[in-house]
Computed example of a mutant assay.
Amino acid sequence: MGNKRIWVERNKDGSWDAFSEDGAHIKFGHDRGQFTPGDLMRVALAGCGALSSQFAVESALGDGEGAKIVVDGKYDPETDSYVSFDEHIVVDATDPANGAKIDDEAAEKLSKRIQAHVKKGCTVAHTYEQPTPVRMDVEIRH
């Protein structure tokens, strides 16, 4: 899962492209309409929550249903780091088209299932919740 090679390359316009060895691609940078690296940290947390909760949500509401996940971060300019994240998971069970009938008891049960799935399966949250060393190697080719 986590062993796939990832790299980034700078574009002539100042933006960056991220690639994975299996063909994934995303553009990022500091310009309007681009994710910054800090944004991508929050995207990773939200995406992990989405994928981890998907089974529980689809089991309750039907195939193709999912949660909307909003992640805010508290940024500390003195340390140039995020010191905390707030993750808000919203499941819209009001759509009668999906055929699900959710009462208070079923909603509470689904909430607990989602929390359990995310706590068990979200690698990003597990990583953010512990000290994670970053090692750097610089190679100058000349």
Rank of each mutant, 00 (worst) to 15 (best):
T123K: 09
D76E: 05
M41H: 09
G47V: 12
V70Y: 07
G66D: 12
A107N: 10
V118Y: 01
E65V: 04
A125T: 00
I89F: 00
A97M: 00
A56W: 03
E87A: 08
V83N: 07
V43C: 11
I89A: 04
P131I: 14
M41P: 04
P77I: 03
I114N: 01
P77R: 11
E108V: 09
A60Q: 08
G29P: 14
S52D: 02
G66C: 11
I102Y: 00
E108M: 11
A100V: 03
D137M: 09
Y75V: 06
V138A: 07
G73C: 05
V71R: 01
G49H: 14
T79S: 15
A100L: 01
D137A: 12
F28Y: 14
P77Q: 12
D39V: 08
I102S: 02
E78H: 15
Q54P: 06
G23W: 06
A100N: 00
G47M: 08
Q34S: 13
E58K: 10
R42I: 09
G73H: 02
G121H: 09
M136E: 13
A60E: 10
R42Q: 13
L51Q: 12
A24V: 04
H117A: 10
A24P: 00
G33Q: 08
G47P: 02
D104Y: 00
T36G: 12
A107W: 07
E129I: 00
G73F: 04
V57A: 13
G64T: 12
D137F: 07
G66N: 13
L45V: 06
E78N: 15
Q130P: 00
D80H: 15
H25L: 09
A50S: 15
G47S: 06
R113M: 07
V57I: 13
A125H: 07
V124G: 01
E139M: 09
D103T: 05
V124M: 02
F28T: 14
A125P: 01
S20Q: 09
V138T: 10
S59N: 15
D95H: 01
Q34M: 15
T36F: 02
P37D: 12
V118Q: 00
V118A: 01
V43F: 06
V83E: 07
T127M: 12
D39H: 14
H30F: 14
D92L: 05
S52Q: 08
D76A: 08
A56R: 02
S81M: 12
D80P: 10
